[in-house]
Design a protein around this nucleic acid. Structure first.
Lengths: 248, 248
DNA sequence: CGATAAACAATCAAAAACGCTCAAAGTGAG
DNA sequence: CTCACTTTGAGCGTTTTTGATTGTTTATCG
């Protein structure tokens, strides 16, 4: 097994387990403890896990994608439909923010028809797509994270604070039972918060898989979102005012 | 079996598997290990796979940033040689800046071997390449320009001013007869100036085509550059101190 | 607080993978 | 057929990765 392959396995185990001991990893991957320790040290250096005494804990499970379902995940028709509905909310001449996630990536395809819009994003893949479609695009700066090809951290937040945004489109890891949008990654949450603060209107793209998932960091309550775009009517249970929901 | 045919097979295997060892490939394709290693080296050079110790890993579809037609202009051997010489000037643990241009793009290939370096760039294609090769990469933010897939403008300049850079690598459009480096784009010139101001050392990558070209905006005189890497001895005419030139 | 066990970093030797050179095999043009 | 050129595989010294061993640090519990 290649080293990079082992790294991926560790990350995908941490995606499910949240916390894993070095000892257990060494049994699961059939390598010695020193090797696992070196792996964990390296993954910690890359900011992909958080090292702790005895093992490691996860930080960004959302972005670890297994080889088999990768294309499906990104190009899913489900997400495409959400993106189309999202793009319908954009008017000509607007300044919009789109956060970096596999869910929002396909919005690029539906924004082409808009006139004179400006898009701000922290996702490099999305930014590149947009630019190639002749859409005026700003990308936040900062360190680039390998798994998501996106910017997080104070650089990105400072950048966002310079803009007045009309509409902000985002996704996140899950919605817990109290209707709070949550994510396992603090940096991602902070970037989204910064963007929400600068925006007149917020739109949450929410596929079915996200319900009853609770992860450490709170973003905002789903009730505070202006529009929820979803393919699952379950969403109604969390909302008071019906007309904020767009079910596709 | 033709070589290109074998390349195709390797790519299609990696399309399904994500990781593959050189050993396994040699069994599957009935050729020796040295041959597989040469194949993998070539495919890595073409940025179609990512080489790693023991085998190779696939490039994830999401990570493909450069348009297809980009490659022809960029992959010239001439530029590659300049980039290799440039990379030789980088030591472990350094913080370097690489400006966005087709000339500097191939530096990514030669920086892999350095340990613990940090690269700052305004070029998105370069940044994406670097990140995939596990190099700590910061990209300046700002508007993205379609032609160059790069950031310019005051956002980018502000970003650069936050760093202390050891070495700054750049190219520009031309060198005029007084030895002044010039460029037709003011924003590009400004970004380069900002980066030069933050840097202890500057390195100019200069291929033959650049001489006697005068364009509107002055960057600095070639005499102020710490190292000039060139494939053309004509450069000597513009310089006093010989040891700043590296002719490849 | 101190004792005990677990986890750790550091070191080293073996194994695997590597790059390199060189000769053999294959290929195409004259 | 010969010659030049490319491609391949074997041999060899080097580098990288790995796992065992050592002594040290850290967590736990009485």
């Amino acid at each position: 097994m290649l080293k990079e392959e082992r790294y991926d396995k560790i990350l995908s185990i941490l995606d499910k387990e949240k916390y894993i001991s070095a000892h257990k990893l060494s049994e699961m991957l059939f390598v010695s403890l020193p090797t696992i320790r070196r792996d964990l040290a390296e993954l910690d250096r890359r900011n992909q896990i958080i090292r702790s005494h005895g093992g490691a804990k996860a930080i960004e499970p959302e972005h670890i994608v297994t080889p088999l379902n990768f294309r499906k995940t990104v190009n899913s028709l489900q997400k495409r439909t959400l993106c189309q509905a999202a793009a319908n909310l954009v008017s000509d001449n607007e300044i919009i923010f789109i956060d970096s996630s596999t869910t929002t990536l396909q919005m690029a395809d539906f924004l082409v028809e808009k006139k004179n819009i400006t898009v701000i994003t922290n996702g490099i893949s999305l930014a590149t797509l947009l630019v190639q479609k002749d859409i005026k695009t700003y990308c936040t700066g900062g360190e680039i994270f390998q798994n998501s090809l996106a910017h997080f951290g104070s650089f990105a937040e400072d950048f966002i604070r310079r803009f007045n945004i009309d509409t902000m489109f985002f996704s996140c890891h899950g919605v817990n039972n109290s209707g709070m949008l949550t994510d396992p990654s603090l940096p991602e949450t902070q970037v989204r918060k910064a963007a929400i603060n600068q925006s007149k209107k917020t739109v949450f793209l929410c596929d079915e898989s996200k319900f009853s998932l609770s992860t450490p960091y709170n973003l905002i309550s789903i009730k505070e979102v202006d529009y929820v775009i979803t393919d699952s009517p379950i969403v109604r249970d969390f909302l008071d005012i019906e007309n904020k929901i767009i079910i596709v």
